[in-house]
Nucleic acid binder design. Sequence first.
DNA 1: TAAGTTAATGAGAATCGTTCGCATTTAGTG
DNA 2: CACTAAATGCGAACGATTCTCATTAACTTA
Lengths: 137, 137
Amino acid sequence: METQDLKKAGLKATVPRMKILALLEENKVRHVSAEDVYKALLESGEDLSLATVYRVLTQFEQAGLVTRHHFEGGHSVFELNQGEHHDHILCVKCGRVDEFVDKVIEERQQKIAAEKGYNMTDHSLYIFGICSACQKD
Amino acid sequence: METQDLKKAGLKATVPRMKILALLEENKVRHVSAEDVYKALLESGEDLSLATVYRVLTQFEQAGLVTRHHFEGGHSVFELNQGEHHDHILCVKCGRVDEFVDKVIEERQQKIAAEKGYNMTDHSLYIFGICSACQKD
DNA sequence: TAAGTTAATGAGAATCGTTCGCATTTAGTG
DNA sequence: CACTAAATGCGAACGATTCTCATTAACTTA
């Protein structure tokens, strides 16, 4: 039950929080904006405010349930944390997003951080390109 | 002369553009926001508008003279393209930014893109951590 | 080098995603 | 079931960026 997940994260199990978490867990789309979440919930009959969506997503992020990605134009998209860490490769033409995991890169990053005297906490890697479908146009 | 650089980039050699390019080439700071550029130029006696700074930086980006980095909170910072490509490692406590180049990572990225059927055009890699100075606090 | 054409600029309004303030409602507790 | 703190809704506020449009400056050609 989601109630447990929320409690574990130190968050009260309120209606908006459960609805948002449930939506993310449906996993229809991996990467959603606050606006996406807001609209999807309105459509499914929920009545909540956009401000709440932002608040909740920010709390989820702080609780480690969700990762926020910063995109161009000040947009953020959120992604439920599940399974292993991964990075992203995205198409600059159609916006398609794929994911990948590469141990070699992970290791090199650790090494680089160490060399520079940093205690690595996180990283963000995006590869941009043109996907196979778009190469045909 | 900067005039040449601008012409080469297909841009008229106007006063604001030359001043902004000169400022970036001074290279006092590698990563500047539009606001930084605007203030610095005002202080050095130039009279230009923030809108122009944004316009010019965007044109520089399109011309490949400059790279724009998207940071948290919808902030962008710009960096003059000079020398070789590099990635960034930054301190989440003090905001310090270091740069690095890693051939292994570059190659892996090419390989991953190919595997996923993408024609890679660019990438962005940030390592986050706590720098040596901040580890002591 | 002066006139003409077009693109660039300044100033401020407008936009967009996001956050805030505050009155109201709800969840968890006893 | 009543109580208290925390969560929500609403709309206003915000900050970065972009737009509009009248004015000005930069290349072109004579």
